[in-house]
Write a protein that binds this DNA or RNA. Structure first.
Lengths: 144, 144
DNA sequence: ATCATACTTGACTATCTTGATCATGTTTGT
DNA sequence: ACAAACATGATCAAGATAGTCAAGTATGAT
């Protein structure tokens, strides 16, 4: 599970959309790409690409024309960082061929388990939770 | 934590060396690169590079000249897959700049926690354990 | 109608990392 | 001396990543 800038931007955009759809409870106000890029310092045309992917995945809707923009199309409580990462097409860390030796195989199981561990973490991070913590101004949630 | 072919090969080589140093208890028989590449299907000159790195990290010793080769220089019970991955210079998944917004920061914490989770898994996998299980012919250790 | 706003689409480029190779040396046992 | 085996540095191709550009289409406002 590699966290690329693409995935990071995608999550930021989704969180931003979730925030907006929450504040203004009327569904009639899509958010323009420009607003997101301004607030989060994301290269404009790059975010366009990313939103296209998110739309294909069904997580956002687009509204064309003047006053158009993007809008979340799912419940923020039903989507996790893992969902977004996978939608963006985050490459799996281990695309190995069939193991040739027993050592090879055992190592492969370790890589898989490591990848599973990080996926578990991301699969538990719901957008709604993150927003909630953000509103309460919680600094850090993981205590070392 | 990205598991590249480089890391995989490094671990295979370390495991192979650990096996050999265990069988023949006299320290007088280094293992030639050729023997490792033959057994594990690793491109020869590539393993040379990798062993160079492992030597710089202090995990293996080299013996030059005829009858030379490589030898483990640490106790297989004291080294984990994480140690090897880090020695190889496995890039950390998140080399992000200082977070500009609060959302940015919260996301970053999640990426860090995900990376930490997989590091924890690899940090518990000692070479000696893997070899032990390999000898007992254990198929898979993680039960879904 | 027309104009500005804003999304759509597809192609394109630069840079970096990864995986891998080669040539040329140096060391050492026999 | 000779061959086995490591040492070192340069180099290369392919793919991914990050980011850009240009031309087009839809829609609300005037």
């Amino acid at each position: 599970m590699v966290i690329s800038a693409r995935v990071h931007y995608a999550c930021l955009a989704m969180l931003e959309l979730a925030m907006r759809s929450d504040e203004a409870s009327d569904d009639s106000s899509p958010v323009a790409i420009r607003e997101i890029t301004d607030r989060h310092n994301i290269p404009g045309p790059f975010l366009v690409q990313i939103l296209r992917t998110l739309r294909a995945a069904g997580w956002v809707q687009s509204v064309r024309g003047s006053q158009g923009g993007y809008r979340l199309s799912v419940d923020p409580a039903k989507i996790t960082l893992l969902d977004i990462a996978e939608a963006i097409g985050c490459q799996e860390s281990s695309a190995r061929a069939t193991p040739s030796t027993q050592l090879d195989e055992m190592l492969g199981e370790h890589w898989d388990e490591a990848a599973a561990a990080s996926r578990r973490v991301l699969g538990e991070a719901r957008l709604s939770d993150i927003l909630e913590r953000c509103r309460h101004g919680d600094a850090s949630m993981f205590y070392i």
